[in-house]
Design a binder for these strands. Sequence first.
DNA 1: CTGAAAGCGCTTACAG
DNA 2: CTGAAAGCGCTTACAG
Lengths: 353, 353
Amino acid sequence: MIPQRSRPATIREVARRAGVSPATVSRVLNGRPYVRPAIRAAVIEAVEALGFRPDPIARSLVVGASRTIGLIVADITNPFYAETAKAIVETARGRGYVVVLCNTENLPNLQAEQIRMLQEQRVEGIILGSVHRRDPAVEELVASGFPCVMYNRRLLTNAGTYVVLDNARGGEEVTRHFLALGHRRIAFLAGPASFSTAADRLAGYRRALRAAGRPVDPRLIRQGQFKPDLAYQAARELFQQRPRPTAVIAGNDLTAFAVLDAAAHLGLRVPEDIGVSGFDDTEFASNERIQLTTVAQQKVEMGRLAVNYLLEFIQDPDRFRRSPIRHVLPPTLIVRRSCGAMGRTRAGLAATV
Amino acid sequence: MIPQRSRPATIREVARRAGVSPATVSRVLNGRPYVRPAIRAAVIEAVEALGFRPDPIARSLVVGASRTIGLIVADITNPFYAETAKAIVETARGRGYVVVLCNTENLPNLQAEQIRMLQEQRVEGIILGSVHRRDPAVEELVASGFPCVMYNRRLLTNAGTYVVLDNARGGEEVTRHFLALGHRRIAFLAGPASFSTAADRLAGYRRALRAAGRPVDPRLIRQGQFKPDLAYQAARELFQQRPRPTAVIAGNDLTAFAVLDAAAHLGLRVPEDIGVSGFDDTEFASNERIQLTTVAQQKVEMGRLAVNYLLEFIQDPDRFRRSPIRHVLPPTLIVRRSCGAMGRTRAGLAATV
DNA sequence: CTGAAAGCGCTTACAG
DNA sequence: CTGAAAGCGCTTACAG
């Protein structure tokens, strides 16, 4: 039953068996019209009898399509990337594509090397999850017209097709939330300024403060840490300030967890002494002991969109080169215990501030 | 400077420019001996001038080597798989290999399909992280001699090359630890019996109890849940038992977190009312609010070994077919707050039991 | 040491 | 509607 795996059948063996030419076999395999039904049937019969599966490598060589796409992420161990990667792999599989995974650790040189490598491997397109705002390798890639879509982060030039969260609105909403709870010294622990996510979230924070007529205090802003250990240090420093901030908005969930740790080590209670929030709504944010208020993104949807746009791009590159798609997804503020909004009146909070 | 990406140079253009034949260019590119130094230099000069990069697809077609490996995991959003995948991708990259990621959700049919697909894509080998104890598709793959290495889980037949944790010893040590703390009703929340990890950890638990002359109470054993929501339910049921278990060993960290949630929702204090432990030592286990006692594995090392064995397998398939490698890594018990060993005397604990 | 030729397994004009 | 031929971009015996 199961064909021996040793020597896969070739198209010419199928042709011989069906009594036709390899060209005809190729035609029925690729669903081309103009093949007499009887011949088509004979070919199909032969294909099945031999368990024939066309060699994708050979096919790639001639048509230049590998049915492979590349996925470049900053860090697959970050739950945000893991969850989007899962959706990407799953969606691609459903469309007959396989995905090659690359991890950049946010190193521009490494990312540039991976882009080169993926193109050499003849992937049909690339999904980029870790672009920097200024990113020569990506800018060049976009300019070249090679099918690619960014997700999560985008270029400062705003070039190319991308799907991102409305990070500014997310930053704005969570800031407004803390303001509404009566907080007046709200710190912002932003990621590196070179990531659009961090920059946009911070911009939203500033906008919300200004809209509320509150000053933006530079001492309350810490830039540069998306890594837990750096965020931990920055949080400790913030907590040492007098007067102490009453809330800290972390640039993502992972840094928010580090903020919680720092608070615990300094004997600060969350949310009584300090309100905390994150971004991403990763699995752990809802853990009973964490209960992190956070700005959620539609991670599965984001991954799915990235794949769909990329495959459309591959189908019709000219269209995307002429008019790239900029898809901005809405944020959702998820209120949990860590911000102090649950089970506390505004008056009660005002009293402790 | 930068060669136009539009029409990549071909080996015959390089040959023309260097005034040699394509065969010679191929030789110097592949580091073959017997090329006159002057000619070699001319070829290298031409390669650089044209920014030539050999087409890996064409190369694959003739040599049958794609410089690509497949990686099949159960769930990339599980931190264990994310961390090992990262090490695998990184190690492979260092050796000039690219990795195609597949996610099985532990579905045997899906896994079988991915194996087929990867072979069609002409990957040179496959790393399998989600095999079932009985797994026809994998057993067939191993029997066929196709280069593959399992990690994390292995087959009941024990066939093939693998690198796994000494799960039995891990289960044994954590059980002994709870026994030493004075616990007498230790529950075990095992993963599905079809995973060797779950089966082996449970076997270790049984062994430790028997060695201590303690009975194995079947009501304290729950099989089947590696998913947080199922584990949560199972934990609630365990906690409703009278007398209540005083400790629960979870099959992995993710289920341990669910156990913590269940305890919290029932108003049980950890570790005062109930000791809890996990497996894997994922990032979150060390979170200040979690402080989960757990059995650690060397995840990076495991990933690295899997790649290295696979590449050796690819180099010398006969050797691996004749004598597969069975690499068993030692577990490390990491004691944190959740088991109750910290800051409590044994007498104190005995009093509460 | 080097080149001409064949070939990897497909697809695709080009004829008919 | 179908086949013979050329070709995708390499590598590898085979001669010399």
